[in-house]
Nucleic acid binder design. Structure first.
Lengths: 205, 205, 205, 205
DNA sequence: TATGAATGAGATTTCATTCAT
DNA sequence: CATGAATGAAATCTCATTCAT
């Protein structure tokens, strides 16, 4: 049982590496088999098909990201602060894990309806988290009433595009350079102002 | 000579239809051949490979969209108004041409580095148009100074995600429902207000 | 494991038969697949390409012939006798194995530079055996000093042409008729006399 | 009519260049068309098929070589001298025309029975010339009675192999280095001695 | 005579998946 | 649980040849 899980993990690890680098179609099962140092039959024992393996990977990565976001959110108070925290968590996590970002944001597109459906499902989960906190911010009176669903997806798409550019072109640096600008952009878009993230040290009494 | 161009057109037409519906990898050259009512060799006479055919298609569609945007922009005056016009033009064009939108926004992702490079190149063209007008708006004093490049890509990404959802889920309706909300979102994000097309009842004096 | 080797053998057998009869280009992988009673993928599991399969075959046949020659040489004593023995062994082996001869001597010509390189490599191996024994004969004083390298290749070429004619025209019969004449020709060419295996009636005193 | 012949010549020239460099199968009609700066239909107007074009080329080249040989032979007197002259002529001609040699000696092998038949036919023509003069030498009493047919083909084969090596490996230089050794080898093989090719100037009376 | 777009059969190769061991 | 040889459908691409202009 323990061994089996380790094998499964090795397969997912190999698949992550290869899918991230070359995409779903350009990655052959043979390569995964070789990279994971397992046999063909071994892979098919753990995953019934290449597609299912890809989906399992997607779920795993989405969960990872979701956990990072949830942790960040839990540590802050106030809807707007939570939103800022989530944004920061997403960028930090994706910036640190190129492979994760590549698969979650770019792979699985244009691979036919099944893949698209899966991607929409994953994005929905994130969109709902964002939307929930936006709704709370509205309820709190922190921001004006807006179309929170549309806003959530717009943010997701913007993030996706920008992270993709970081991945492929290397610029601008996600955290140091863009995070404040992006946060400001997002908050502006809902009519809120950025709480000074680096407040000057208050003078001693 | 005239006929030759017609054949080329027929191939592109068939490719557009099939790639949009099933994606690059799930579309076989045989199907394009059958749909275009041409022979296999005929396709390869006009396009040296499946990939090159796909890229030619991408270019053609990008041009179409670009022309629509440019026309819309030319008819308006003032940077902000041009931006609103472009947004409307993009949404109108994409909403009316599902296939165009699908290929430009969703296909060609996760198909390996070559495809991604092509996509980045096309998006750059649009981003530059947006950025140029944002820069003008800043210069005019219509909006505050912001990171216009980041904003341009963020908008593109947001548009992409929202249009994708329209395509796959059918809701919300791009023009009637979302255009005002989206325009407001975008303009808010740069600290500008929507020129009230649907004036709210004016408050009592 | 054992079975795998048998399959490989079956493929080589089929390839030998077909390449010999029709040449490299005129033989389709489909035919090899059918003849070997294996699947297409099966062939490609054992040989990465048609060309590699052909080369593997060439090596195998060259080895076979080389073994026959070496055995014949080992059984004789004296450089000249060894040369005669080798000649006889080559003719006997090739005469008995038309397919082997056809592939080794005629196929793989005019198939492009890669093929020619391979052929030159194989011929070199044989030329070196001949040359070595010619050098020994010179050292022994059995024959005068000559350009042994050139002689080795000349003999190979002569053999090639004659065997080819036997193969295609059926005449003259390689062993019964030509062996003595050819041996005499070769030995004459290096200034040595045939050790009379068929003594002419001795002249009257 | 005049133009037509020039076109035909251009096609043959292009075909010669390409077939020599890459072989029959590796040369596409498209390449010939491009090199000859003519259209597809143009080639097919002059030659009914690729195979026929190749054969026409073979014939043309064989004729060229034959003429060189015949000229050389006509200038000498005595069967043995004629043989020496022919040998020299062949080597000189082939050494000066790599492409000619490549096609005549190496291309058209292993391309299936039709090609082999053609090659045998061409070689026969040369063999007959050699044999005729060998027979004359025997009749003259210049050499002992031998199997002249076998000898003719053996020589042809030897020449073929050696010229091939010159072509592909560049060594040894055909004329300067090998001609004397080869001539000696050939003459030895029929029991004749080389007539000093560079006689010391006879002293004045 | 010449053009070149079009044909279409056929070639090699790939690869997800299976299954006897 | 794991192995890896084998399958076979399908994919992309080639290329000699034709024919309307």
């Amino acid at each position: 049982m323990r061994d089996s899980e380790a094998t499964r993990e090795r397969i997912l690890e190999a698949a992550e590496e290869l899918f991230a680098a070359k995409g779903f179609y350009e990655t052959a099962m043979d390569e995964i088999v070789k990279t994971a140092k397992i046999s063909k039959g071994g892979v098919y024992f753990h995953f019934p098909s290449k597609e299912k393996l890809f989906f399992a990977l997607l779920d795993r990565l989405a969960e990872k990201l979701q956990r990072a976001v949830e942790t960040a959110i839990a540590q802050r108070h106030g809807a707007l602060a939570k939103i800022e925290g989530a944004l920061e968590a997403v960028l930090k996590t994706l910036a640190g894990k190129r492979r994760l970002a590549q698969i979650l944001l770019r792979q699985g597109y244009g691979l036919g309806p099944d893949f698209e459906r899966k991607r929409l499902e994953i994005y929905s989960r994130f969109a709902q988290v964002i939307q929930k906190h936006l709704d709370e911010a509205v309820a709190e009176g922190s921001i004006e009433s807006i179309n929170t669903e549309l806003t959530a997806y717009a943010w997701l798409g913007a993030l996706n595009e920008l992270v993709t550019r970081w991945i492929y072109t290397g610029t601008p640096d996600p955290l140091k350079e863009s995070l404040p600008a992006l946060t400001r952009l997002f908050l502006s878009s809902i009519g809120a102002a950025l709480k000074d993230p680096h407040p000057a040290p208050s003078p001693p009494p």
